[in-house]
């Protein structure tokens, strides 16, 4: 499995967060998550402008196998969604940390519980055991 990008934060629900310079946060699912799900065939995105709570349902990713909810790791307003996923959900399989981003949010507070890349890697290693 590829190395985890150092500029990201992670969650135990296998999501990643990138703090952008304009104060927004970009969110996606991790490479581990896309690999476990298999080829993605459909992504249900939230509306731009929608307010989501931390832990609330934010998106649905559907693979050849099953549908999985993506929960918002932070509370805030959705300011952008990755429209490209509508026609090409496999972008998540191909580039989970880049082209496969899912939403961009403006956080309403910043008390998110996240893991550093090292902590997430440790968490993955424990799952493997």
């Amino acid at each position: 499995m590829s190395e985890l990008p150092g500029d990201l934060k992670f969650t135990k629900e296998h999501e990643w967060l990138r703090q952008e310079e304009d104060g927004t946060v970009t969110i996606g699912i991790t490479d581990h998550a896309q690999s476990a799900l298999g080829d993605l065939v459909y992504v249900e995105l939230p509306e731009v402008g929608q307010e989501v709570e931390a832990g609330g349902e934010m998106a649905v990713v559907e693979s050849v196998k099953a549908a999985s909810d993506v929960y918002a790791p932070i509370a805030g307003e959705v300011v952008a969604v990755n429209e490209g996923l509508a026609d090409d959900p496999e972008k998540i399989n191909g580039d989970a940390y880049g082209d496969g981003w899912i939403v961009r949010m403006r956080p309403s507070n910043d008390d998110a519980e996240t893991l550093t890349p090292d902590e997430y890697q440790e968490f993955l290693d424990e799952l493997e055991e």
């Binding site: 298999g38 080829d39 065939v41 050849v64 496999e90 399989n93």
Partner: peptide, 8 residues
């Protein structure tokens, strides 16, 4: 084997 890389 479920798949060898990509089911699609």
């Amino acid at each position: 084997p479920l798949h060898y890389g990509s089911q699609l």
